[in-house]
Design a protein around this nucleic acid. Sequence first.
DNA 1: GTATGTGAAATGTTTCACAGCC
DNA 2: GGCTGTGAAACATTTCACATAC
Lengths: 284, 284
Amino acid sequence: MTAHRDRLDAVSVSSENAAAESVTNTVHAERTIPEATVARLALYLRALTGLAEHGTATVSSESLATAAGVNSAKLRKDLSYLGSYGVRGVGYDVALLTEQMRSTLGLNENRAVALIGLGHLGKALAGYTGFATRGFRISALIDTDPELVGTTLREIAVQHVDLLEQIVRSENIAIAVIAVPSSVAQEVCDRLVAAGVTSILNFAPTVLAVPDHVDVRKVDLAAELQILSFHDNRKSARSDAQAGPLSAALGTRPGGGTGLASSTMGATGLGSKAMSDTAIGSTA
Amino acid sequence: MTAHRDRLDAVSVSSENAAAESVTNTVHAERTIPEATVARLALYLRALTGLAEHGTATVSSESLATAAGVNSAKLRKDLSYLGSYGVRGVGYDVALLTEQMRSTLGLNENRAVALIGLGHLGKALAGYTGFATRGFRISALIDTDPELVGTTLREIAVQHVDLLEQIVRSENIAIAVIAVPSSVAQEVCDRLVAAGVTSILNFAPTVLAVPDHVDVRKVDLAAELQILSFHDNRKSARSDAQAGPLSAALGTRPGGGTGLASSTMGATGLGSKAMSDTAIGSTA
DNA sequence: GTATGTGAAATGTTTCACAGCC
DNA sequence: GGCTGTGAAACATTTCACATAC
């Protein structure tokens, strides 16, 4: 209805020469997939998993797009980079597409991931059941806290950071998640890189310096909130100031736009499902 | 050195008519700031805060850019959207620029934020000291767990979700953070929206359906890992397959690229600083 | 008839390079 | 001489619209 803003953003800055070149490896000759598309593949994959659970065998670009929260043109263009796995006049085979996507993302190798830092955030990540089903295996939990070292979380032993290099090498870990305070993030990062890690997901609010061949993605909570704040600011500025002239919609709006059940559950719903644990957890 | 990829991405999909139009409000007539730029302002702000702590009064686009992890041309263009707050031949005044930026992001109003879901992730977020100093005040913690309701976290009482609407209205909350399991995320979202929340940061791996006037940003941990996985996959594919022909760099690379101290601390460093808590926490 | 796959247009973002000011 | 501010070029992403295939 109204003007749109399909967001991109803040969460990450990487440096690498990986994505650009045309590599043409693996059996079904791979095209060069745009970054923006790669970032959305994960969304599609989740949507597909959901469909598979519902027993759907075939899906149109239109429905899959809706499920993933994008428009169908974008979805089709994105999928076209993986190759032609749809059938005109019919749609996409859920299983086939899922497989194709997992293979493109390299999720069929059950990649070993190390998680460093087991504060609340680290624990939340460690408890994330989604990893296993999504092609990752947390094969190392690392911290300094003597209270934690030696205990196990989800059947994985927490080891001392002194053993970091050793663990990374013996487990052949290429991907690591940094969930330590920013004061030690660079230090941990350096050691990971020296030990051979080539991809890092960083939750500390620091700009990590890494050599060229290492990929860093960053998740910055405060930044996310600030971006929201900016938009919110704009909104209130608008309704405050020109609360009359032209398109004075907003407050007066009939009921929304993306036409949806604004609140269909019984007022104080939320039966008994616990809200507390693993926000990240759950299905797909 | 090598080809670059300055990442954008996955973390969010919003729908709103806010950013597009030229609003021209507040005193110093505001231009229309591109989304990509908004997403980076938070980074700059953090870098500025760091500089201020070090007592730096003036900074060049070059150094600020380095501190924020972007290149100087981009930084200058970004700053130019806020107006001209630099001095040619000199640089930017740290205090002035900080102030300008905070005002642009709407951080001078100490926005009330509600946090719903106090599992590990929620606790990590609640414990994030950065919020207060960055213009946000967590003014409500909400969960269903009877063990939690009634207790306090960082001096804020945990309240039952039954009171959600009431709290949102009385505290005048416009921004909410959803850290509940995805099974109840949409439900919580609907109630927040009905109560008047207009901006949501969602940690549940679900596509939230919201009316047009509501902004949703999403942080998707599994997606982030999958994006890393994709790049990692490409890397190993390359070194495996064509480990000889043309540009067979990678493994043989002299030492990196972004020339930096690869590992300057004493081998098993990390003195005594606890790594465990609040990965997100700390300065700036 | 229906829905994919994709060139070509429109839009958005980054980088270049230099005029303008200190 | 040094550094900002910004048009204009290069590049990337999204959207359109339709030929193509079932």
